[in-house]
Amino acid sequence: MVEMIQPILKEILFGSIGITFSFLKVLIPLMIMIEILMAYNLVEKLADKLKFLSGALRMEKQSLFPLLIGVVMGLTYGAGTLIEINDKTPIPKKDFVLIGTFLFICHGIIETTLLFGVAGANIWVISLGRLVFAFIITFIAARLPVIARMGKETL
């Protein structure tokens, strides 16, 4: 019995520690990048440059910033920024739905690309592929009568 259990325990211990080390390979660059992005307000500057996209997605220009935060840094950062901005200048309900649609397909792109890249997935498919897919679905969603009808009313 002991001879059977020992290799299994070894596999569990070394395996999970090994995995955690490979997570560090992802987490260290990720967390440093997020801190730098925040320190220099880089996402805000990017949102400014990409303002023209808000027209294609039928969103207010101010909605692009929380969307980009979610796409680049992750869902919790995105939701936090969304709530913060909504408190200052209310965001239309339609934009909430569209941001939600985009983000549920594609968020935390730095983290997930690094993570699954280390695991051996094709990083172009999981980063660009997901961005394009999310853009197409949101583009369509913005034009659905059910969502278009929401107009500019706020929550």
Binding site: S16, T20, L24, L27, I28, M31, I32, I34, E35, A39
Partner: peptide, 22 residues
């Protein structure tokens, strides 16, 4: 400062993850 905070956050997150991953 950003690099330092990021590094510390990464180590903390890795420890947190070990508890789930194990």
């Amino acid at each position: 400062a950003a690099v330092k905070t990021g590094f510390i956050k990464a180590i903390k997150t890795a420890f947190m993850l070990l508890k789930i991953v194990l």
